[in-house]
Write a protein that binds this DNA or RNA. Structure first.
Lengths: 244, 244
DNA sequence: CCGTGCCAGTTGTTCAACAATCCCGCAATA
DNA sequence: TATTGCGGGATTGTTGAACAACTGGCACGG
C-alpha cells in the first residue's frame, strides 16, 4: 500500500472507507438475495406459474419432467417443492406426488378467519399508520378506479390485492407482510377456481374507498368494523360462487 | 361382491357405507401425517432440540455430521433444514451453512408487532369463542398458578405459552393456530438468550387471570385492550433484558 | 505489523441407483 | 356383468458418491 491511491487514514471513527466497505457488503448481500440458490429460483418459477393461473388447481407436477423443464436436478427441485408445500400453494400426498392445491370451502372459511383477525387488527391497532403508509392505501384505491375506468378486470383484482396488502402493512411488521403475501397467493388460487374471477372484485371498490376515507379521517375503529363487515360479505359471496 | 357381507346398496344419497369409507380414508391420512417422511422426522428432531434449548442460538449445524447423527442422508437432512429455515428457527448463510437463529431486538419488536395484531384481534373478534374454547384459556391460567405454587418456573413458562395459544385459538383458524405455534417456538429462542428466562413470566400470571375473567364475563373489548397493554409491557420488559 | 496466496473444510448441486408404493389394465371368476 | 386378484409400469422416497464454488484460517513474504 505505498504507491497507488490515497494512503489509508484508518483512524476516524467512521472512516469513509469503512462506509464504502459496508456498502459493498450490502450489495453483495443483495446480490445473494436476488441470485439465491437454484432451489429458490425454481420455487419462484413454479410459484409464478401457479399464481399466474397457468398451472391450475389439481394439476400434478411430476418431479422428473418438471426438474428437466426448469433445468435443475430432481433433488434441488424437491427442495423447491417442499418450500411451496409449506406455503400451501402445493400439497404433497405421500408416494403420489405434489399437485397444485385445490382450496375447498373450509379453506376459504379458514383464510377469511385469518383475514378477519389480521386486517381489521392492523387497521385499528397497527403502529405504523404513518402518512406514507396511509398514502399507499389511497394509491391502491386510485389504482383500482383507474383499472375500472379502462375496463381492466385483471387490473381491478391486482389493485384489490394491493389494497389489502397495504392495510396489513399498517402493522409495520415484515413478518406479517410476508404472511399476507402468502395468504394473497392462496387467494389467487381460490379465484382461479371460479367461473368468472375477473368480475368478482369490482363491487368492492367502493368499500375500499370508504374504508380508506375513514382511515384518513382517523376513524380507525370505524374503518376496522367496515372492513370486517366487508370481509364477511366477500367470504359468503365467494363461498356461493365456489364450485363443488 | 356376492357372498360375503351385505350386498352393496349403492343408491342412498349418503349411504352409511360411504361415511365409513371416508372415515377409513381419514384415518389413513392421519397415519400418514404421523409417520410422515424421514425429512419431516429429522426436522422435528432438530426443532425439538432447538426449542428445548439444547441447541443454543448461534450454534452451527454442519450437514454431514448432523445427518450422520440423525441417521439420514445429507440430501434428506437438507430438506429438513430448509423447512426449519422457513420457520425462522434456523438461518442459512450462503456457503456458510445453517446456524440456530439469534433473534435480535428488531426481531423481538417484529414478533410483538405480530402478536399485538393477532392476540387482541382473536380475543375481540374471534368467531370460535365457544365455552369450551374459553375453558381452555381458563385451564391454562390454572396451570400457571399450579406451577407457581410448586415453584416450577419452567412450568410457568409453558403455561404462559398455552395461555397465548388458547387465546389465538378463539379465532377458530387452523392456519392461525399453526402460525402461532411457529411464533411461540421463535419466542422460546428469545427466552433462551436471556440470563434468567425462568423468572420472566411469573409477573404476568395475574394479567392472564384478569384477561380470562373479562373474557368469561363477555367483556371482550376490554379483554383485548388489557392484553394489548400487557403485550406492550412484556415487549419492553424483554427488550430491556436482551443481551447485546 | 500487514497483505497475499494457498489449503483444508463445507456447502450447493448433480447424477445414478434402489426399494417402496401407487395406478392402470387385464385376466380369472362367480 | 361386475368384482376380485395380479402383474407391470411409472413415480416417489431415500441413499451414496462425486465435483465445483466458496469460505476461513494459516503460513509465507515483505
Amino acid at each position: 500500500m505505498s504507491t497507488t491511491g490515497p494512503t489509508r487514514p484508518d483512524p476516524g471513527p467512521t472512516s469513509g472507507f469503512e462506509s464504502v466497505l459496508d456498502a459493498l457488503d450490502a450489495e453483495r448481500r443483495a446480490r445473494r438475495a436476488v441470485m439465491s440458490t437454484s432451489a429458490d429460483r425454481a420455487a419462484r418459477t413454479v410459484r409464478e406459474q401457479v399464481v399466474e393461473g397457468r398451472l391450475r388447481s389439481g394439476t400434478r407436477l411430476p418431479e422428473e419432467r418438471l426438474a428437466a423443464a426448469i433445468g435443475v436436478s430432481r433433488n434441488t427441485l424437491r427442495e423447491a417443492l417442499s418450500q411451496l408445500v409449506a406455503e400451501r400453494i402445493l400439497v404433497r400426498e405421500a408416494h403420489r406426488g405434489v399437485v397444485v392445491a385445490t382450496p375447498d370451502a373450509d379453506d376459504v372459511r379458514d383464510l377469511y378467519a385469518v383475514r378477519l383477525v389480521l386486517e381489521p387488527g392492523a387497521l385499528e391497532h397497527g403502529t405504523a399508520a404513518t402518512p406514507a403508509a396511509v398514502a399507499r392505501v389511497r394509491d391502491s384505491v386510485a389504482e383500482g378506479y383507474a383499472a375500472a375506468d379502462r375496463g381492466d378486470h385483471a387490473g381491478i383484482g391486482d389493485a384489490n390485492q394491493h389494497f389489502h396488502r397495504a392495510v396489513v402493512s399498517l402493522a409495520g411488521s415484515p413478518r406479517l407482510d410476508a404472511q399476507m403475501d402468502l395468504l394473497l397467493a392462496e387467494m389467487r388460487l381460490v379465484f382461479h377456481r371460479m367461473g368468472d374471477p375477473e368480475a368478482f372484485h369490482a363491487p368492492y371498490l367502493a368499500d375500499n374507498d370508504r374504508i380508506c376515507g375513514l382511515l384518513e379521517a382517523g376513524e380507525r375503529g370505524a374503518a376496522a368494523h367496515h372492513l370486517a363487515d366487508y370481509l364477511a360479505r366477500a367470504r359468503d359471496h365467494l363461498l356461493g360462487e365456489l364450485p363443488a
